[in-house]
Nucleic acid binder design. Structure first.
Length: 352
DNA sequence: GACACGTGGTT
DNA sequence: TAACCAAGTGT
């Protein structure tokens, strides 16, 4: 888009945002720490979902120092159910780095911000523009869609050519007054008007400058990247209870055995013993490993879909007297305060 | 550069 | 209902 057009379009967009911006909690603050939290929570996650976590998380960890001083267990417990748990671990590392390197203040310097764990190009730009009013660009899924349509960018999303064009254009949009407002307005437009399907072009403040609309190609843009179908994986889970009905939970740590649960998946979270595989033999191994006795009952099935995997979990039941090692016996109805993935809750619910 | 990393809502 | 997708990052 030409600079003169962009200038008029920006003014129009900012005016539109002034009228139509949703009143979201992270828009009521200029605290860079609070904005950082919101940006990390919002990664690949819907606003409505984040609304259930944001205030609670900030109340528990109101400052950089409060979060830096917390245990990873406590951080993950407040993140429980939000998904992409590595975000929480990296955020925790990030605030610790802010304490260690920057005296507990989120750095205004762009390079210093970008160097923090869990702070990539997008998050650095979001904090910089929104909290510090610095002319730094952002490109998230919304901005990518808006700019792809506006400028008729035909390269598939995620390709180097597309990234280059989008960040260049986003830089031009942000290189003026009120970059934080401009950036948020671009995202808000993508979230509420320039939507993936059924965009409301009639209500769009930028329709006069939209190349896709002019060419009647709004539905063709942006060009999606090709995705592979999730692989189906069989998993055996063991719900072993003591006489009080408490179930054995073990902390999920990376190991060198590889396989589905040998990597970063659910790392640091508590779960019932699980192992890739199928059949009663695998269940018996799991039970033996943890000092439990396997029940005769047929396993229940739980389907849980991740981004790249479709998990078919067969939930076996067993009995146990005492937890070994780092295991703990936990009341399945009192999981608050524990970092637990939704999969674990589904597995426990299937075996009640 | 492709892939791993969660979950829930929408179509 | 299967597919898609939502304010990405790290390896």
């Amino acid at each position: 888009m030409k600079a003169a057009d962009r200038s008029r379009a920006r003014a129009k967009l900012v005016a539109w945002f002034g009228e139509h911006a949703r009143a979201l909690p992270w828009r009521q603050t200029s605290d860079p720490y609070a904005i950082w939290i919101s940006e990390v929570m919002l990664q690949q996650t819907r606003v409505e979902t984040v609304l259930r976590y944001y205030d609670r998380f900030l109340a528990r960890f109101p400052t950089v120092r409060a979060l830096a001083d917390a245990s990873e267990d406590d951080v993950l417990s407040m993140w429980s159910g939000l998904g992409y748990y590595r975000r929480a671990r990296l955020l925790h590392e990030g605030v610790k780095a802010v304490v260690a390197r920057h005296g507990g203040r989120v750095p205004e310097d762009a390079e210093a911000r970008r160097a923090l764990p869990g702070v990539g190009r997008y998050t650095a730009g979001a904090i910089g523009s929104i909290a510090f009013d610095r002319p730094e660009p952002i490109v998230d899924g919304n901005v990518a869609r808006v700019l792809s349509r506006l400028d008729v960018i035909e390269h598939a999303i995620g390709t180097p050519a597309s990234e280059k064009a989008l960040w260049a254009e986003a830089s031009a949009w942000a290189a003026h007054d009120a970059p934080g407002t401009v950036n948020q307005a671009l995202m808000e437009l993508g979230a509420t008007v320039c939507t993936p399907t059924s965009p409301r072009c009639d209500a769009c403040p930028l329709r006069a400058w939209c190349g896709a609309r002019r060419a009647d190609r709004v539905d063709e843009l942006p060009v999606p990247r090709v995705k592979k179908a999730p692989k189906e994986v069989s998993v055996v889970a063991l719900v072993a209870r003591d006489r009080a009905g408490h179930a054995l939970l073990v902390k999920h740590e990376a190991n060198d055995e590889g396989g589905l649960f040998g990597g970063d998946l659910f790392k640091g979270l508590w779960s019932v013993p699980m192992q890739e595989g199928e059949g009663r033999g695998v269940a018996r191994e799991l039970a033996e490993l943890h000092g439990a006795a396997l029940d005769l009952a047929e396993p229940r099935q739980v389907i849980h879909v991740l981004t790249h995997r479709r998990l078919r979990v067969l939930v076996h039941q067993g009995r146990i007297a005492k937890a070994r090692g780092t295991g703990r016996l936990v009341d399945p109805d009192a999981l608050d305060g524990l970092g637990v993935a939704t999969l674990t809750k589904k597995v426990l619910a299937s075996a009640r």
